[in-house]
C-alpha cells in the first residue's frame, strides 16, 4: 500500500471542498478510500460508491466515481440491488454509525448473512453529527450528547461484532490515525469476495469531542493511538480498558458468495425445464 500523490488523489474528486467541519476525520477516510482503489488498480468506471444519509453519506458528492446518495439507512439494500444487477461493479457502501446500526441495522445483518460481494465502510464517530449531536447506537454509556444531557443510559453496539455474528465473511477495524494501515484494511475488504465490513473509528470534535473527553481534533487523533490495540495483541490476551478496542482484520472466513450461489439457482432453473 502506498500513499499516492495529492494530484493523483484529486483526479478522483469532483470537489475538494466539503461541508465537513474543521477537525473532522472524514476527509482522511475519503483519501484512504481513493488510495485503496488506486493501490488495487481498479477501473474507476467500475467503482461505485453507495451511501446513506448523514455526514458520511456526503462523500458521494465528492468522489468522482459512480455514486449514489440514497435514503437514511438504505444504502446496503440499494447496493445489493445494484451489485446483483451488474456484478462487474466494485461496490463500496459508506454509512455512518447511526445509518448503519440504527435505522439500517436490519439491512446490515441481512446483507452480512447473504454474503453479497459488497464492502461496507462504516464511519463511526459515536454520534449523529449531521443533525447536531444526538446520541446513537454507538454512543457509549454515560456519554453526553444533545439527547443524553444527563449521560447516555444505553450501552453501545460493537458494529464489528454485530457484523461477524450476522455472518459477514470479512470484518476489520481501523483508525484515521494509522493511515496506511487503514488503506490496507480497506483494500483487503474490497478484494475480499463476499460481504466485508471495515469500521473506521472517525472523530467528531464538534459534537462529540466538545462534550466528551477532548474538543481538540489533534488530541482526539492521539487518543485513537492509545485506544487502538492491534488484534494480534488482543488475541494474545493483552488486557484492554473499557475505552480500548481491537484494530486490524478481526474476522476472515471464506464462504460461498451470493452471486455464485445464485448462479447455481439459475442452472437448476434452466435445467429442470421440460
Amino acid at each position: 500500500m502506498t500513499r499516492h500523490a495529492t494530484v493523483e488523489i484529486r483526479e478522483h474528486l469532483r470537489s475538494a471542498k466539503t461541508l465537513w467541519c474543521p477537525g473532522c476525520t472524514n476527509g482522511i477516510v475519503t483519501r484512504a478510500m481513493i488510495d485503496a482503489y488506486l493501490s488495487l488498480g481498479l477501473d474507476p468506471e467500475k467503482v461505485t460508491v453507495v451511501a446513506g444519509i448523514g455526514c458520511a453519506g456526503r462523500i458521494t458528492a465528492y468522489l468522482d466515481y459512480s455514486t449514489v446518495h440514497t435514503a437514511h439507512g438504505r444504502a446496503l439494500a440499494v447496493a445489493t440491488g445494484a451489485k446483483l444487477a451488474d456484478p462487474e461493479l466494485v461496490v463500496s457502501v459508506v454509512m455512518g454509525d447511526g445509518d448503519c446500526a440504527a435505522i439500517g441495522g436490519n439491512h446490515l445483518i441481512h446483507a452480512a448473512r447473504r454474503n453479497v460481494d459488497l464492502t461496507a465502510i462504516v464511519f463511526n464517530n459515536d454520534i449523529y453529527g449531521m443533525t447536531g449531536g444526538q446520541a446513537g447506537p454507538t454512543t457509549h454509556e454515560g456519554d453526553l450528547s444533545k439527547t443524553s444531557p444527563f449521560g447516555h443510559p444505553e450501552p453501545a453496539f460493537d458494529i464489528c461484532e454485530l457484523a461477524r455474528a450476522a455472518g459477514a465473511t470479512f470484518v476489520a477495524r481501523g483508525t484515521p490515525y494509522a493511515y496506511l494501515k487503514l488503506v490496507q484494511l480497506l483494500a483487503a475488504g474490497i478484494v475480499h469476495k463476499g460481504f466485508s465490513l471495515v469500521e473506521v473509528m472517525s472523530n467528531c470534535p464538534t459534537y462529540y469531542g466538545r462534550f466528551n473527553r477532548t474538543p481538540v481534533p489533534a488530541e482526539m487523533l492521539k487518543l485513537q493511538q492509545k485506544q487502538a490495540v492491534p488484534v494480534e495483541k488482543h488475541k494474545a490476551g493483552a488486557p484492554m480498558t473499557e475505552e480500548q478496542f481491537p484494530v486490524g482484520v478481526l474476522h476472515h472466513v471464506e464462504r460461498a458468495e451470493y452471486l455464485e450461489a445464485y448462479e447455481e439457482v439459475r442452472r437448476r432453473a434452466t435445467g429442470i425445464k421440460v
Binding site: T70, R74, A77, T80, G81, A82, D86, L89, N106, H110
Partner: peptide, 24 residues
C-alpha cells in the same frame, strides 16, 4: 434474471432502485 427475497419491503424497493440504476 434475478429474484431476491429481501428482509422487508423497505429493502425490497431499495434493491429495485439499485438494480434499475445499474441498468436492469
Amino acid at each position: 434474471g434475478t429474484f431476491i427475497q429481501m428482509e422487508d419491503e423497505i429493502a425490497s424497493i431499495a434493491a429495485v432502485v439499485g438494480a434499475s440504476l445499474a441498468g436492469v
